[in-house]
Amino acid sequence: MKHHIRFKVNGDQYDLAVDPWRTLNDLLREDLNLTGTKFGCGTGDCGACTVMLDGKTINSCLTLAVEVDRREVTTVEGLAPSGEELHPIQETFIEKGAIQCGFCTPGMEMSGLFLLNGKKTPTESEIRTALSGNLCRCTGYNKIVDAIAETGKKMKK
């Protein structure tokens, strides 16, 4: 039996009937066409599916769609203030060379942002800890860590 859920994604309200076994990741990608959120493993290890639920990062592949009823989801598509402007974390990821294949990027940005929302000037070790749920196979992480530190400085200004 389908469940009726009502929730917000990036500020937009949705009313949907969903099967109880479907994940938030599936719902975002398949039903809402928000394909910026990736699916890399399905076991919560790689973090490519990371989104924010009520301001906290979660693995959308491990979250059932029914769990987001009456809650607010932010995906990578909700970061930039407009089609022309970028969020500082997006801007900085580009400038600092923190992106290669780009598949981990949306998840990395969400995890980085969650950290910075709590603390604008984290230590390097805090940044690396904050990324412990996000895998990257291209960059070796260093430029991602630099980009997050730099974004914090920009956001503080």
Binding site: T35, V76, L86, E109
Partner: peptide, 8 residues
Amino acid sequence: DGRVKATG
């Protein structure tokens, strides 16, 4: 291609 990757 940084921009389209950063925005998803």
